[in-house]
Structure formats: structure tokens, C-alpha cells
């Protein structure tokens, strides 16, 4: 089972490296969306500092959404998904691997980039580190929940819009606690409770979502 997991993660990461344009465009999307806010609301440092956590998290959600439609679509089109479904191991294991690879190629780069963007909003240093930590703990949940939506809309025409409508409401808890953790730190309070909830969301997502995703994929394959 571990061997299958390793193979799927290695394969998806290799494919991602050969298609770097996808990763880079999602990162630039993140940077541009975040940079539009100071231009729109004006350069008041206090206001920007208050807006920063929410804006960064919303941009991170949207940037993660960008790569979701392709999570299973390519494998579905070229027949690899059939082969995964016919493997002797449960399909959910392969799905878990694909979710991890998706996080490594979307959530993790966003997280690593976020201190730079945080500085742009004049966030204090401890709030920036909390932002990185919150993104690191929270973004796996985005990939796991998003995978369910990607599987449910697989093979539908115009599935991209439907996917957003389906997945974005489910991202709300992650958004609230993720932004809340940074807010609390900026306000001088402890963020441990927020981080615990985020961690719980990610763990529960990574554990339960692959089963739901695998069930949805089997329906799509029928």
C-alpha cells in the first residue's frame, strides 16, 4: 500500500515538474489577486494590516481551486484512472497519493511564498510566521476537500464553475480559522485554538475525503 502511495506521489510530482507552467500560473494568480487589494482600497497601512489575513487566505483558496479541475481530468481522459481503479489496492489509496501530490504542487508553494506577500501588507513578523504556519496546517484540507469536488464534476461540461460552487462553501471553516489564527496573533492573543481546529480539519479531510472521492470516481467511470 505504501509502495502504491509512493508511486502515485512520485508520478504526479514528475508530471507537475514537466508542466511547470501550471504551478507557476497558479502562483502568479495568487500574487496578482493579493496585490490588487492595496491598489483597490488605498495605501493605508492600518487598513491593509487588518485586511491582510482574510485577503491572503481568500487568494490561497482561489489559487488552489485553479488546479483542481485537472486533478483527475487528465487521468480520466487517457485511461489511467481506469487502471488505478482496477489495481488490487483500494482506489482511495491512489486518491490519497494524488491529494498529497496536489498539495505539494499547489498548497506548499503558496505557503512558501506567503511571507513575501505578508510583508507587502506590512504585517508584523510574528503575524507573518503565524500566517505561514496556518497555511501549512490548513492547505492540505483544501486539497482533500477539493478532490471530492473534482471527482464529482469529472466528465461534466462546464464542470469548472460547478466545481467552484460545490467546493468554495466547504472551504469556509478553513478560511475562518486560518484567517482567525493570523488575526489573533496580530491582536496579541494566542492562536493555538485556531491552529488545533485547522489541524483537525486537515487530518479529518485527508483521512475521510479520499474514500468519498474514490466513490465519486467509480460513479464517473461507469
Amino acid at each position: 500500500m505504501l509502495a502504491l502511495l509512493k508511486t502515485v506521489v512520485a508520478r504526479d510530482l514528475r508530471l507537475a515538474m514537466r508542466r511547470q507552467a501550471d504551478i507557476v500560473s497558479a502562483l502568479f494568480f495568487f500574487i496578482i489577486v493579493v496585490s490588487l487589494f492595496p491598489l483597490g482600497v488605498g495605501p493605508e497601512a492600518d487598513l491593509l494590516r487588518r485586511l491582510a489575513p482574510g485577503v491572503l487566505w481568500v487568494a490561497a483558496l482561489l489559487a488552489t481551486m485553479l488546479s483542481l479541475p485537472r486533478l483527475f481530468a487528465d487521468d480520466f481522459r487517457d485511461g489511467t484512472l481506469e487502471q488505478l481503479a482496477l489495481g488490487p489496492q483500494p482506489l482511495a489509496v491512489a486518491v490519497f497519493g494524488k491529494t498529497l501530490a496536489h498539495w505539494l504542487s499547489s498548497g506548499l508553494p503558496l505557503t512558501l511564498l506567503s511571507p513575501l506577500i505578508g510583508a507587502q501588507f506590512d504585517l508584523p513578523a510574528d503575524a507573518v510566521w503565524m500566517l505561514v504556519l496556518a497555511l501549512l496546517i490548513g492547505t492540505p484540507a483544501l486539497s482533500a476537500i477539493g478532490a471530492i469536488g473534482a471527482a464529482l464534476t469529472l466528465g461534466l461540461r462546464g464542470g469548472g464553475v460547478l466545481l467552484s460552487l460545490l467546493v468554495l462553501p466547504l472551504y469556509i471553516p478553513v478560511l475562518i480559522f486560518g484567517a482567525g489564527a493570523v488575526d489573533a496573533t496580530a491582536g496579541g492573543l494566542g492562536a493555538q485554538a485556531h491552529l488545533s481546529v485547522l489541524g483537525a480539519l486537515s487530518l479529518a479531510g485527508l483521512f475521510f475525503a479520499p474514500w468519498a472521492t474514490a466513490a465519486a470516481l467509480r460513479v464517473a467511470l461507469e
Binding site: R14, Q83, G87
Partner: peptide
């Protein structure tokens, strides 16, 4: 072996073959 070849355009034939064998266990 279905209608679709289940190979990745970005990978080489060798990588495709090794990967599909590993995925099949």
C-alpha cells in the same frame, strides 16, 4: 487494456511502462 492507452504524453515510454507496472502492483 482499454480503448485509451493509459500513457502520459509528458513521460517517456520507459517511464510510462515502469510506472504502470508499479501502479498495477
Amino acid at each position: 487494456l482499454g480503448h485509451h492507452n493509459a500513457i502520459k504524453e509528458e513521460l517517456t515510454p520507459l517511464e510510462n511502462l515502469l510506472t504502470s507496472a508499479r501502479l498495477a502492483g
